[in-house]
Design a protein around this nucleic acid. Sequence first.
DNA 1: TTAAATACGACTATTTAAGTCTTATATTTA
DNA 2: TAAATATAAGACTTAAATAGTCGTATTTAA
Lengths: 135, 135
Amino acid sequence: MLRLSKKTEYALMAVKYMAVNQNGKCITVKEIADTYGISFQLLAKLMQQLVRNGIIESQQGTKGGYRLNKSADSILLLDIINAIEENYGLTDCMESEIPENGCARANCCTIRDPLAKVQNKINRIFSETTIGQIL
Amino acid sequence: MLRLSKKTEYALMAVKYMAVNQNGKCITVKEIADTYGISFQLLAKLMQQLVRNGIIESQQGTKGGYRLNKSADSILLLDIINAIEENYGLTDCMESEIPENGCARANCCTIRDPLAKVQNKINRIFSETTIGQIL
DNA sequence: TTAAATACGACTATTTAAGTCTTATATTTA
DNA sequence: TAAATATAAGACTTAAATAGTCGTATTTAA
């Protein structure tokens, strides 16, 4: 159904929140989760994924929290999608570099190449949109 | 995960198959299902959805089957998505015209409007691609 | 009138997404 | 240094959406 997952929605809201509200200081998961009514545990794990992908950085312990690791203008929508969406792509075969990758219809498929072109256009859209633009 | 459903993949393959192989004559569900190893029952229902959406027309009875209802060049990828995908849209709130439509975070959501713009760009891509182009 | 096709609603199974639970680790401050 | 507050992370459960099946009715050519 071409949906962004809730996880990606939450991650976007969190990153945007940090861009607006951090002023040198750390922002806690609790603050963001409470603001938007998002599950704390779930958001906590999303934040960790964003750290692993270099989008934000963490400070553990009391007075800890998270900070953006780069300017809002240099964080692409595609960065967040890639960090959070587990199987991003219009089709199963589009995630992996190897076209046939486990597809039973690889030999008779007539739509992969055209859809790959569409996928590229969509990726371009997600690369053109930055967090800075959506503040 | 931003996937096209299998149903949409099958519908695309079916419409493309018809564009290539129909020459005045009807094409049966069985022929397409066998060619690509798609469930007959499932594809049959997809074909019916395509009929309801005016993309193809049906001929019942022996010697029956389906035909494209318009030229391949005038069938948009978006037409097929709209006919088959049940909840098309980047977010739940993007399907309906009424922004808040049941969203508990409608009052505090900071990402709807930016994502709506992205959605429009994606729709444009799906409108630019026709079945004629992917033959 | 039979065979071969579409029409369609109800149902089931499978997979994915979403959320929860639990425990461990790091860091500040009293 | 102990307590409080934060992140880190894996295992698990629940809920929802997707994919596929079943059964029956209807249409039409030969």
